[in-house]
Design a protein around this nucleic acid. Structure first.
Lengths: 343, 343
DNA sequence: TTGAAAGCGCTACCAA
DNA sequence: TTGGTAGCGCTTTCAA
């Protein structure tokens, strides 16, 4: 009101009758300010409605409080749930440190060498969070080359900072549950081959089967690619096994839902004839006519942890690469039951 | 490599053998640079891997390229779809101007006077996008008081910059469709009373009924609040009408889905006995056993348009408040059919 | 077409 | 406990 244009730190200093240094100290909560002066500065700030110019603060050497999140634009509708869980989790985590979130949405399935790496040039970005490794390899490589701090989610690698879900033990839990129900002929439809999640879930399946002394019949491991269609195709293949499985561990819910449809269309019952366990707990999983037993990944929690981790990294509290693994949880619904007698 | 620490514009100027002014001109694409010098600068930039310090640019008067998006953290799972549509749309729109997106997630249903208005103090934020008016009243008021440019989505108000969906005509379309099918006894379950969307959809219903010369029987307007439960309750109430409706326009999909469930549990058929039209086209709408006919709101498009609008505003291309309204689209699925003969 | 130099608003260092 | 002042890295006059 007093003056045209923006109020700056000198205006505050003048009306408080103190130096800009003192004002700066108050703004930054430096303890060496007498309480009476602190009060005068605060009054002046209020009176003038002063807001520090963040760019000037950053330029003068103050640490930036903004973190970038690089997130995939998903092609499939139900994956948007993961995306929003991650955003919520990150926002949650950062808010505990009053950090700001800069969002960078990358197009799906694009050759990531063509991706816009603009965010890497934003010198005020303190660190980066990658919602996934897949699709961001190029950007991650550049971030590393530039010396930008970052954390990768849904991924595990001893040479990177990352937080992941323990797919391996989650798969084991799923098989344990099935085995506990009395199933012996347990098959699996895998995720996309050579993906970390797909691989670990498959390994978990194999390990648990071995531990229970269960035989993996020929044809019991069917390769999927996360898509609905591959779930349907996978189930068709399983029907052709000489010994039809009584339970199937499907590495993704979208595939699992289609697998159930195929079973039912073949005139068989879920879980009566075949039990199904999925993976992901997408929203639809609870709403289909035969609600799906599935493994829920704590995406929001993972995102929050990764924000915490990045905070520790940029503030120099940790040295070298750090990893964290979270456990997934088996959600029991209606697609699983003990096998039929004699089957 | 040449030098410790960050490369700055002087380093570039020195290795190019030119002034910092010229380097700045190249960075900012000012035309008054000879092509030979432009080339030398570009080479130097490449060689040193130089990135302009954004804070310094902003401080020196360059217009900021970062825009804030204020978005609600939804309580209900299926609303996350709206959220991600909005984020995608905004990201899309901003990317056309190379603008960056700062995300501010507000908690749901919180007294918005307690909300963290930190984002308003980020002096490098060029303008704000509000994903909704509801829940952000306090923040909007402050933004206006501070003179920050902003656009509000899903809302219409002649004194604000906003882009909305035409709920009114969308509701009319829905009733026209039902009427065209031959329905005469058409009821409605409304949204939360006193919300703009709820009000407009109800008005559209009334207007269309009037235009078709259809009588709104007593009890045909039932008040809902968007929640699943209110959809079920609403349908129960409709059953008590002396003349049972043959079609119901439900102002939200979550309510509509529950309404269908109630009808079916009462032993009646959808659409045989009662046709249902929803509103929103949430992902689940297409997947329920009786896929829902519903009004799809172009959320991503709306978000994109609002990004464009904000760009026009901050760049001074428009004066005063601007509004834009988008049309929704009726998606015909399996929950609607002509009424039974004689009913 | 080019460059010198004056800020932009702040923090950090050094002195008092 | 306080303040003076030198940058931080850039854009933008203004002159040449």
């Amino acid at each position: 009101m007093v003056k045209k244009g923006k109020i700056n730190i000198s205006d505050v200093a003048r009306t408080a009758g103190l130096s800009t240094t003192t004002v700066s100290r108050v703004i930054n909560n430096v303890s060496t300010v007498s309480s009476s002066n602190r009060y005068r500065v605060e009054e002046a700030i209020k009176k003038l409605n002063y807001k520090p110019n963040v760019s000037a603060q950053y330029l003068a050497g103050k640490k930036s409080m903004t973190v970038g999140l690089v997130i995939q634009r998903y092609a499939q509708m139900f994956q948007t749930f993961h995306m929003s869980e991650i955003i919520h989790g990150v926002a949650d985590g950062l808010s505990e440190f009053n950090m700001d979130l800069l969002l960078h949405v990358t197009p799906p399935e694009m050759d990531d060498r063509l991706v816009n790496t603009h965010i890497l040039n934003l010198t005020f970005v303190r660190g980066l969070l990658f919602s996934d490794k897949v699709g961001n390899e190029e950007m991650i490589k550049k971030a590393r080359a530039e010396g930008i701090d970052y954390v990768i989610m849904i991924h595990h690698d001893k040479s990177e900072n990352c937080v992941s879900i323990n797919n391996h033990t989650a798969a084991i839990d799923a098989i344990n549950y099935l085995s506990g129900l009395g199933h012996k002929r347990i098959a699996t439809i895998t995720g996309k081959p050579y993906t970390q999640a797909g691989g670990e879930r498959l390994e978990g399946y194999k390990e648990a089967m071995r531990d229970h002394g269960l035989k993996i019949e020929s044809g019991y491991i069917v390769e999927g690619d996360w898509s609905s269609k591959s779930g349907a195709d996978g189930m068709e293949k399983l029907f052709k096994c000489s010994q039809r499985p009584t339970a199937v561990f499907v590495a993704g819910d979208e595939m699992a839902i289609e697998a159930i449809r195929v079973i039912q269309e073949a005139g068989l019952k879920v879980p009566g004839d075949i039990s199904i366990v999925g993976f992901d707990d997408i929203p639809l999983a609870a709403y289909i006519p035969t609600p799906l037993t599935t493994v829920r990944q704590p995406m929001a929690e993972m995102a929050k942890r990764s924000a915490f981790m990045l905070n520790r990294i940029v503030s120099g509290e940790v040295e070298g690469a750090v990893q964290e693994k979270l456990s997934a949880e088996l959600v029991k619904r209606k697609s699983t039951a003990p096998p039929k007698k004699g089957s």
